[in-house]
């Protein structure tokens, strides 16, 4: 019944987009219109001045840091909305209730692996501005380690280790940390989220403590993402 209209709609959109794309700049052109002075500024500026080798991290946390604050807020909103929906749900009707695994190998291996995963996550967060990575990637790895703990040892023990209230507080506080770093820019006499413009020392290119506020923001985002992941999973596992 809804097959035909949906199919026609999709074909119509496909036709319009095919029309548009057949005249769009070809794929992979080095002189494509999007490769303009804006892009070159990011890359050249990075090479010579701000001293953050990972340009993507620099864009995310510095040039377009305001968008990233919005992005962290979207994560916060999703956790809030999901927590409000799942508050007071039992998790019983969804398949069988989630319990700890009784597989010895699984438990032993997880016990050994989790600390290393966490250290790697922290490494990716902390070195996000000098190498591939960043707060989002590292936070996901850190959250992944806690997710592994949840799946192997069950939601009850996870909540005992990391009470839900702590997770929520970490979530809100890490998001507010971003705002605080931004307000720091105003206090230093520049604009919101200002980095070098506010006189924050940028440090030596390629070293751990470099890039000014990028490092601070990355740390907050890492905690935020990790807290988001574990909060969502604990809620979905029905431990409220």
């Amino acid at each position: 019944m809804r097959q035909l209209p949906a199919f026609l709609l999709v074909v119509a959109i496909a036709y319009v987009l095919a029309l548009a794309l057949s005249e769009a700049p070809a794929f992979g052109r080095v002189d494509a219109p999007a490769r303009n002075e804006v892009m070159r500024f990011y890359l050249d500026e990075e090479c010579e001045q701000s001293g953050i080798p990972n340009t993507v991290t620099a864009i995310i946390f510095d040039y377009r840091g305001y968008d990233t604050m919005g992005e962290a807020t979207v994560l916060f909103t999703a956790v809030g909305a999901a927590a409000a929906v799942l508050a007071g749900h039992s998790g019983t009707l969804v398949a069988r209730p989630m319990a700890a695994s009784d597989d010895v190998i699984l438990r032993m291996v997880s016990r050994m692996v989790i600390p290393f995963v966490q250290i790697f996550g922290i490494y990716v967060i902390v070195y996000g501005h000098v190498s591939p990575g960043g707060g989002f990637a590292g936070g996901t790895i850190l959250g992944g380690s806690m997710a592994l703990y949840l799946f192997v040892f069950g939601p009850k023990r996870t909540v005992k280790k990391l009470p839900l209230a702590w997770g929520e507080i970490a979530d809100g506080a890490a998001a507010f940390w971003y705002v605080l770093v931004g307000l720091g820019g105003i206090l230093l006499g520049a604009n919101f989220l200002a980095n070098a413009a506010a006189g924050v020392p940028l440090g030596v290119r390629g070293q751990l403590f470099s890039g000014g506020t990028i490092w601070l923001i990355g740390l907050g985002v890492g905690v935020k993402v990790a807290a988001t992941i574990i909060n969502l999973l604990v809620h979905l596992a029905g431990e409220t």
């Binding site: 804006v38 892009m39 050249d44 010579e48 080798p53 340009t55 993507v56 864009i59 190498s131 390629g206």
Partner: peptide
């Protein structure tokens, strides 16, 4: 190349992919 500057690597902006889209 991917837009992560390497020590001693090429420094001219046009030799990298567009970092804005990655962000």
């Amino acid at each position: 190349l991917s837009p992560i500057m390497r020590r001693g690597g090429p420094v001219q902006g046009l030799t990298y992919t567009n970092p804005l889209l990655a962000a």
